[in-house]
Every structure is written in C-alpha cells, then in structure tokens.
Simulated scan of single mutants.
Amino acid sequence: MGRIIFLDGTSGSGRTSIARELLDILDDGVLFHLAADGFSAMRTGRELRTERLDTTLRPTGEGRHRSIAALARVGDDIVVDHVLSEPWRLPDCPTVLPPEDVLFAGVHGPPDEPTRREPARGDRPPGFAAHQYDLVHAHGDYDLACDTGTESPRECARRIKDFLPHRPGPTAFTRFRRRHLTAGRAGREQARS
C-alpha cells in the first residue's frame, strides 16, 4: 500500500507549493502529485450552469478520491492537495482511502494572503479563499498542521517528511472515520426507535 500525504487548505494557502517541495525532497519510491486544480483541468472547458454545478462536480470529486485510492492500492505514494470545502468531501475520503495510510496535514496561512493573490491568479472570484477558510478547517482534526505564514513551503515539506516515520496512531482519518461511523449508527438507531 502506498502512502498518502493529504494536504488540506483553502485556495491560495500554499498546498501546491508544499506538494511540489515534497516531490523534490521525498526520495523513496514513486511519488505522484494529484492537485485539485490539475484534476479539475481534465474536465471539458465548457461553462457549467449554476443549477448543474453540484450534480456535475460531486461525481468528479468522488472519482478523484477513488483515483487516489486506486494508485495507493498498487503501491504508489501520493501527495494530494485538496480543498475540503464541501460538506460531503471529508466524510467520503476515509470511506475510500485507507485511513491508517493517510497523513492528513492542514495548510494554514495568513488569511489575507490568499485574498491578495486572487487577482493575480485570475481564476477565482474575489473573496473565494476567505469564504472557504471556515468550511475547510471546520473539522479541526489533523495529524499535522503547517502555517505558510511562518514557514516556507520547503520548511513545511521538511516537517512533513520528518513526521512521516513517527506518525502516532490512530491517524486523523481513522479518528474521523470512527466518529462518522458512530454518528451514522446512532442516527440509524434513533430512527428505528
């Protein structure tokens, strides 16, 4: 089973920069970077109508999670940069990804930095990253947190590399899966009574 380094942060937080650094410094085995923007870029360039946005994007996101799982299953190590801004995204991940093989890292940065970078990117509406912040980090449970406001992407990548062999258990994904499954069972039992 391959390792999965899962970077979660808002648009413009530095996830992709950290992922690139990880590809440079992790030298043991084949490593893939599955970027949120790269996966979306494979979709047709046609404008999506607002009323079809969720029904179109959710299957794409679920397919992405299953692609990550498939690569890990054959032994590839993967660095994922993701934005867990939709309520279904985080619950889906630990059901398809092996929770014990995922290092879940939160990528935080100065709140004003992503907003400052938005005009230069040209592919995000103003305020997009600020809107995502509370949604992305609402769960508050990571194996490791990085702050791109106080550390460079290279320093964050080195901390992740150093942390990998010493991860305590259970992992954040394992804890989340247990909570999610327990809540689901409690809900079903309550519905029966």
Rank of each mutant, 00 (worst) to 15 (best):
Q132A: 09
V102E: 03
E118L: 09
Y133K: 15
A120T: 14
E100N: 08
R117T: 06
E100H: 12
F104K: 09
A138G: 11
R116E: 07
E118D: 10
L135H: 13
L97H: 09
P125A: 07
H137N: 07
P111L: 02
A130Q: 00
P110G: 10
R116W: 09
R121E: 02
G122I: 06
G106R: 07
G127H: 03
A129N: 03
F104D: 10
P125M: 08
T115N: 01
P125Q: 04
V136K: 01
E118R: 05
Q132T: 04
P111M: 02
D101P: 08
G106N: 05
A130C: 00
D134F: 15
V136I: 06
A120H: 10
D101Y: 12
G106D: 06
D112C: 05
A105N: 11
A138D: 12
H139D: 08
H131V: 14
A105F: 05
R117F: 03
R116K: 11
R124S: 07
A105E: 08
V107F: 12
D134S: 15
R124H: 11
P119C: 03
L135I: 08
P98R: 12
V136S: 03
L103N: 03
R121Y: 05
L103K: 02
L135N: 11
P119I: 07
H137R: 13
R117M: 02
E118W: 12
P119L: 02
A129G: 05
E113G: 05
D112A: 13
F104M: 13
Y133T: 14
Q132F: 04
G122R: 06
P125K: 07
G122N: 08
P111R: 04
F128L: 06
H108A: 12
D101E: 15
E118G: 07
D123I: 00
D134Q: 13
H108K: 14
G106H: 08
F104G: 10
L97K: 01
A129E: 02
E113P: 08
P110N: 14
P98F: 14
P119E: 06
H108D: 07
P111N: 01
A130G: 00
E113M: 10
D134M: 14
H131G: 14
P114Y: 01
H131A: 15
H131Y: 14
H131R: 14
D112H: 11
A105L: 08
L97R: 00
L135K: 15
L97Y: 03
A120V: 13
E113Q: 09
Y133L: 13
V102K: 00
T115M: 03
H137P: 00
F104N: 11
E100F: 12
E100K: 15
D134H: 15
G122H: 11
R124I: 02
G109P: 10
D112M: 08
G127E: 02
G122F: 04
D134P: 12
P111I: 01
E100M: 11
E113A: 10
H108N: 09
L103M: 04
F128W: 15
L135V: 07
G127Y: 00
V102C: 04
H139S: 03
